[in-house]
Amino acid sequence: MISLEQTLSISIKLVSLSCVIQAAELFRLRTFLVKSKIIKISAALFYAICASLLLVSTLTLSSIFLKTAAILLVLQLCILWALQRPFNGGSDYMTINALVCLSVAQNSSTAAPYAMGYLAIQLTLSYFLAGFAKITEAKWWSGEALKHFINRSSYSVPIGIKKLSQHSTLIQLTSIGLLLVEIGFPIIFLAKITLPIFLSTTLVFHLLNFWVFGLNRFFFAWLACYPALLWLIQNYR
């Protein structure tokens, strides 16, 4: 049984790992973003924000400080402000959500269970709503939509995956499997036994998303929310 304290401690480390990865990427791109005038603030300020995010998240990850969710949240918001938009869409949304919930949970023991519960619900919704938006599309059931995203979208998909996507049965089965996992995810609240199956399947799904579409940040942003879901299911069934 995972306690709320353990959940908070694991969650903040996982979200810090996500922040370290995000900050290191932005730190690497800092000169490029400034030179190409993509960011609207001074170079020095942008460097300072990226360096601070990298430093605070590294210190949190190494357990030197743990009550840092609010600081990480402010730094993440500063980055969004500098870029005038999310850098990586959904992974930014999930990271911000996790940091908001952890900021509340770290500063109020009364609100902590509600904050972590909210994070677990958001995680569940992220799969369920993504599946729900797809089920009415016949192209998702036939595999055509998945084939489209692999072959004709702006993502740089490896050639081998593009070749694999030409097998119509394989692409249709993968597509239906994906729909069932996404739409069926809330089953974990009804049958505890399905929890390890769903969580391991979604982890593989995020790894595949990285390999196929290059979406590395999603893996860590979603992983950071798993302890909240484990805690909610173990304590409120």
Partner: peptide, 21 residues
Amino acid sequence: PRKFWQLLHNPQENCRLFLQS
């Protein structure tokens, strides 16, 4: 071509997607 270590560090690709959007 994609490398597995890019799971931990993929700045160029993420920046390209940012610019694309």
